[in-house]
Simulated scan of single mutants.
Amino acid sequence: MSTPKTIRWGILATGGIAKTFTKDLLVDPQTRGVTNVKHTVVAAASSSSQSRAQDFLKDTGCPADAKAYGSYEELVKDPNIDIIYIATPHSHHYQNAMLCLEAGKNVLCEKAFTVNAAQAKALAEKAKEKDLFLMEAVWTRYFPLSIYVRDLITSGRIGPVVRVTADNGFATDPEEAFGDGKHRLVNPDLAGGALLDLGIYSLTWVFQTLYHTQPEKTRQPPKVLAAVKNYSQTKAADETTTIMLVFPRSPEDGGDAHAVATTSIRVTTTPGGTHDAPSIRISGPKGEIQVFPPAFRPTRTKLILNDGTVEEKHWPHPGPGKGSGWYNGFGNGKNAEGEGHGMFWEADEAATALLEGRKEGKYEGLAESILIMEVMDEVRKQGGLVYPEKIETTKYPTEL
């Protein structure tokens, strides 16, 4: 057996999602059957202070010799970094990713990739110019569960997909929870709203089942019809968005396929957190694939065929295991002892791409990331949702 290649990561930003990712990143990949790569963190940066970066490195269990920086500009100059994970709000992704690419660093950038498609295209062009790896960190695409669902579709078990419904919603009272208007979910200065933050997962399921599973040479962009309800307090961030998509297909491939992607910060997919109803339904003439919530981190699927066949599967997230004393989670949530959050699979893919010399992700290339941004641009256009120019611009550098 060959020795796994160690990929050296830099972490840009030190908030909640960065902590979850980094803790997952440092779990031994062999616990999930990965033997070709290993991960280490050599540096982290906080835009507020070096001490915050130091606390982050300590809290996430990074190596003692990992460096702490008080600015992103210092981080990208570190010669020991192979790839940088960007964990800032999506309003800042374009400026942060361009900083990394200009400095010659490979990039794994959190979703939503950017604020608009023009920014995504500019990043893709810069990565190509610099011959660098660039990937949107849509972690859900890299779950074994997601691979299984896509394989079910391409195997023909349910026939050509006719319809997909996908929802990612949360039961929140935004006036009470985000009363000052500064939270990223409602703050227009952070490209706030349900669409870019939550709706990206609904669109992820639509695209990975109705677009990505089609032959690359024949698949076509969808037609889009959207309804957007803006949050009344700021009037510049959506609280509920519904998108209807029609994916053109030849008659031989089943004809046009329909999808409905919904998202809301006011109503949830399954009230009471029961997770007893599917958040994603993928329907074909022979049956249906159901994926149970949450849409971003599902752990259960059900295949139901017209002939009465029912195949239910549970997809636990690996990690150090019970008795390890190790915990991970996100926000106020905590997973079971020794259970990873699931962010390591996208890191494994990025590391493997570096090993193989690839410049894009395997399960969502840059062209598809750009297309999804174009769809969200159209949704925003139809809903009249516009953000401040400083976060919409492709001008670099721009002070945020």
Rank of each mutant, 00 (worst) to 15 (best):
M1V: 02
S2A: 13
I11W: 03
R32I: 09
V34F: 03
T35W: 12
T40H: 04
L57Q: 12
C62A: 15
A66T: 11
A68K: 07
A68R: 09
G70A: 04
Y72E: 04
K77A: 05
I86L: 12
M98H: 10
E102Q: 12
K105M: 01
K130P: 06
D131T: 10
F143R: 13
D151H: 02
R157T: 15
R157M: 15
V162Y: 11
D167R: 12
N168H: 15
P174F: 01
G181V: 00
P188C: 08
S202V: 08
W205R: 02
W205N: 15
L210I: 03
Y211N: 11
E216T: 00
K217S: 13
Y231L: 14
S232T: 08
K235G: 11
A236T: 00
T240C: 02
T240Q: 04
T241M: 11
L245S: 07
R249I: 00
S250G: 06
P251S: 06
D256I: 00
A257D: 05
H258N: 13
T263V: 07
D276Q: 04
P278C: 13
I282V: 11
I282Y: 05
S283M: 10
P285C: 05
I289V: 08
I289H: 00
I289G: 06
V291H: 11
P293Q: 04
A295V: 03
L305E: 14
T309P: 01
E311C: 00
P316R: 11
Y327T: 01
N328M: 01
N332P: 00
G333S: 02
A336T: 03
E337K: 10
G338F: 02
E339Q: 09
H341C: 00
G357T: 01
G357M: 01
E374R: 06
M376Q: 01
P388V: 03
